[in-house]
Write a protein that binds this DNA or RNA. Structure first.
Lengths: 255, 255
DNA sequence: AAGTGGTCTAGACCACCAT
DNA sequence: TGGTGGTCTAGACCACTTA
């Protein structure tokens, strides 16, 4: 039997206009192969010598191209093992996309409990963030996240139906791993990064009930737009965080 | 006349234990020269060929060392001009350390107005963040920041006296550029990055008065620890942000 | 032992910038 | 025009992983 994902054979690079560095052309070719599904998340790339000769470039140039994609978390290098197309897992989610931790610095993956799942329409904010028309068909999902057994975060997700056709409550709830991993495995959508805008607001009745807090208590409201390749938005969510025992954490300027 | 900052001559690298890559040894040497003051912020490095031969390494290895320091914002490369020791300016501050912008995405540098400047003592939080004893002598400073003429942020800074000896209200207020630039020029302290922890709280009387808002209105409280070389903490500040017209913004996972 | 990525060399030539 | 960093080559050898 053939392997499930035969690595594509890359054609030598010819000229591709002046001013564009060769390594960037190579990086774009690799990215295109990943986006097209020819090299799915988790799959291994041909080794660097082979790749370099397929592209007709030196190994140094090939490494510079791969290095760019590693820096943007599209690829993952593991010495002695190979280079892999990055995929979502609990660790990556925790590190890159979940920025709530206990006041004393303890980080842990949240327990997610889905409290609402229905077909609906994008509200104005979501439509704006996703670049779609308000009222477009969408999944509307609410989750409650617990840390150390305590309800700390309330999430309202809006997913455009056009990207997530065929999603069901059952598939959503019974996913084997994180939500972003589900996007990736079931819909070939890879979340690479996200923009977040944070405000302080008074908890509304909905959130207060879901999190068991007093109405009008100050809470963080985090509005996130998740992006895939080419910075195309694929998910809009509003997270409400009860701060006090837990906090929203950022390290500025690491890059 | 001699130039103000003659670039130090670097000695060839001999062995430096196994397992440590050569380029990392070179990077540490450069960093040490910067930390020691031999290459002050804004100064230009010798060109890459010369540096490589001083260290006795190939230009590729030298470039890899410099590349690491550029990635961590210690150095700055400008093609055709040279490699420079990074220094703080309004642009860098805005980009790396000021994450408040108008709800519609407009970013602008804040107008800073100092409303309190006095000698005092570190409180428990600041002492903990700075790794010093509570009650250590410190400068305590309060600023009000305006955006588009509107008071949006209230800052409470605590600076350990030991690092900022000789600071005066006059020097602080009449600094020619940003606060971090003052740290750098007057105290040889370069802020490289910062950790921030964000909570939603009700505005206290102090803050409400300074920002002209109602007491108990939900506001963001951002507690920042600013770090220099070796992740040594040098400043602790609590910023209170009125969100609504303005927001706290983050882009996750760029790196 | 075989295969992978990681480090390092000793160049050549290009693109950009100041003068 | 001369100097800078940026790109690219064609290797050699090292360190790590797996079998």
């Amino acid at each position: 039997m053939p392997t499930v994902h035969p690595p594509p054979a890359f054609q030598p690079i010819v000229h591709e206009g002046v001013g564009v560095p060769l390594y960037r052309v190579v990086a774009r070719r690799l990215l295109a192969a990943i986006e097209s599904g020819a090299m799915p998340p988790g799959s291994v790339l041909p080794n660097e010598r082979d790749l370099a000769s397929q592209f007709g470039v030196s190994i140094g140039t090939l490494r510079q191209a791969v290095g760019e994609l590693v820096a943007s978390h599209v690829l993952l290098r593991r010495q002695g093992r190979g280079t892999f197309v990055a995929h979502h897992d609990a660790e990556r989610f925790l590190f890159h996309f979940f920025h709530v931790e206990r006041a004393d610095g303890l980080r842990e993956a949240p327990e997610v409990e889905t409290i609402r799942f229905e077909r609906g329409r994008l509200d104005d904010d979501a439509a704006d963030a996703l670049g779609l028309r308000p009222g477009s068909a969408a999944w509307r999902i609410e989750n409650r996240l617990r840390l150390q057994g305590r309800a700390v975060v309330h999430d309202r997700l809006q997913l455009p139906l056009s990207h997530f056709r065929g999603l069901t409550a059952k598939r959503f709830v019974e996913r084997p791993s994180t939500i972003y991993r589900l996007y990736q495995d079931a819909f070939a959508i890879t979340v690479l990064r996200a923009r977040e805008r944070v405000r302080a607001v008074a908890a509304d009745a909905d959130v207060a009930q879901a999190l068991g807090i007093t109405r009008s208590q100050p809470v963080l409201e985090v509005r996130r737009t998740a992006l895939t390749f080419g910075d195309r938005p694929v998910e809009y969510r509003v997270s409400t965080v009860v701060t006090g025992a837990h906090e929203y954490v950022q390290t500025l300027s690491r890059h």
